[in-house]
Amino acid sequence: MTFQLFVFYVLAAILVFAAGRVITVRNPVYAALFLVLAFFTSAGIWMLLEAEFLSITLVLVYVGAVMVLFLFVVMMLDLNIAPLREGFMQYLPVGILVGLIMVIEMIFLITQRYFKADNYPIPPPSDAGYSNTEALGLLLYSEYLYQFEIAAVILLVAIVAAIALTMRKRPETRYQKPAEQINVKKEDRLRVVSMNSEKD
């Protein structure tokens, strides 16, 4: 067993364990943290595949940003677990059925002609000067430029839509307007009154 294979098995074991705990652990915060662990180890596996750009981006985007926001939300929820678990037995048969269908589909996919492991020999390791990031960039910005830009626009639309859907103006909320604060003059705020001193 080579060192790389050993690393792969260790990472794969951690990944399977973490992914399992995501759905079995009771506390939602722990579940989110196990998901973080799962992302992190799968980034390690991608690194073994010499896909360093995807691997680091997975950590940067999913672990560094998405899961932080996720944890943010999950920690704020004051969940009472007991009522959530009430319907468990009722939904169990449906759950098992869906799971079973997915497993059967995956078995078909993996054991059939096109997706057999034999069809995917271990790729030869690329030389030291090879940069996965550059290769990816060259392809994205030349051959797949249209698709890339369309995906970017779709994402932008999604962001705008998400903000538009959740934004609500509340008239009683008071905002600070820095531009007005900066432009304020002495005359706007201060009134000098000249009056005689009062004597009784």
């Binding site: 360093e52 750009f53 950590v59 940067l60 940003a65």
Partner: peptide
């Protein structure tokens, strides 16, 4: 490493977990 800049960004973004947890 070739993707050093990305690596640095990823690592600095991980520090927040210590604080949140």
């Amino acid at each position: 490493v070739n993707a050093g800049l990305l690596y640095v960004l990823a690592m600095t973004s991980l520090g927040v977990y210590g604080v949140i947890i």
